[in-house]
Simulated assay, not measured.
Amino acid sequence: MIYEQQLQEDLFQWKKKLLRKSSMFERVSKKTQTKINDRIPEKVHTVITESIKKMVQATLAGSNLTTSEKKLEGKTLEDKEKLVKQTIAAFQKTAAVEGAGTGAGGIFGSVADFPLLLGIKMKCLFEIASLYGFDPKQYEERVFLLYVFQLAYSSDEHRRTTFEIIENWETKKKDLKEMDWKVFQQEYRDHIDLVKLLQIMPGIGAVVGGVANYHLVRHLGETAMNCYRIRTLK
């Protein structure tokens, strides 16, 4: 019970940090990227959106098949979270190795990094869901994972909207429509573009790729933990 009380306080602090206004640098970056997106022809957006949609759906299907069954009977929430933290740490190391390898390949390696990192992130989310006792084989749980993903990688306004859905999942999930894949891909790309930009530079690409991937997976893992804490503690 003491552990759950501490989690409530941790959740309060996380929510406060999550919903705070972005820094000036982040807001300027978002405005710049929005202007760039506005200049890209709609046909190009359609192609990118469809590509990422298929990539995510394929990754979800693959993760669904490979996620290991977890024996959670008799485990407390504290026990589960110890396993979750170990899982996130393992995926961080995997992502760092992958990022360093593709970063060393310059721009061509960075192109390969995108789907590989996406796969690592989705697999990580599936494992976390399983450890909290939720079945990612169920359709609504896979949809929930996509909203967790969006929450981790989105701008102020979209982050608040997404958090409201997650915080009130049991009531909101009934009214959800088809995922807006264009928004999904733009928010994700805008969030990671600046972080990953230096990865294409010769000489430092490997270091930047490894460090960036390590922190991107950590951020996703922490976001997922708090989202599942909200559902579990309710």
Rank of each mutant, 00 (worst) to 15 (best):
Q8I: 04
V183Y: 06
E178T: 08
K75V: 02
K43F: 09
T87D: 03
A96F: 01
I2F: 15
H215W: 00
T67F: 05
D156F: 01
Y153C: 06
T102L: 04
K182F: 00
T94Y: 02
Q57D: 08
E222C: 03
R189Y: 11
F144P: 06
S155F: 03
K137N: 14
H191M: 10
L18C: 09
P115K: 04
E42Q: 11
M179R: 13
F126V: 01
T161W: 03
A89M: 12
G62V: 02
E140W: 00
A104T: 01
W14M: 04
D135E: 07
D10Y: 12
S29A: 13
E42Y: 07
F184E: 01
Q13I: 08
H45D: 04
S23M: 01
L11G: 08
I2S: 15
K80H: 11
I200H: 04
G74T: 06
T49K: 14
L60S: 09
A224H: 05
W14Y: 14
N37M: 11
L233K: 08
F144M: 03
K177L: 09
A224M: 00
I192S: 03
A100E: 13
V111G: 09
D180K: 13
K137R: 10
F25Q: 05
T171S: 15
L125N: 09
N168A: 09
R218I: 00
Q186T: 08
E4H: 13
V207W: 07
E69M: 14
F144N: 04
E9M: 10
E69R: 13
H158I: 06
Q150D: 05
I40W: 05
T49W: 02
L125E: 02
E170Q: 12
S68F: 01
E26R: 10
P136I: 02
I204N: 06
A206F: 09
L176W: 12
Q185D: 11
T66C: 08
F163Y: 15
F184C: 00
H215N: 05
G106D: 08
K123L: 06
L145H: 04
D193F: 12
S63F: 00
E73F: 01
L145W: 00
Q138H: 09
V84Y: 01
T66P: 11
N168P: 15
M201A: 13
D38Y: 14
Q185Y: 13
Q92L: 02
D190A: 13
I48R: 06
E50T: 11
S22K: 10
M122K: 14
Q199G: 11
L19V: 06
S29Q: 09
I166A: 00
Q185G: 03
T94E: 12
M201R: 10
Q57G: 00
D175I: 07
W14I: 02
T59M: 08
S63G: 15
L65Y: 01
L197P: 10
K174A: 14
L77N: 05
G101D: 01
E157C: 04
Y153S: 07
I36A: 13
K174Q: 13
K137A: 15
L19C: 07
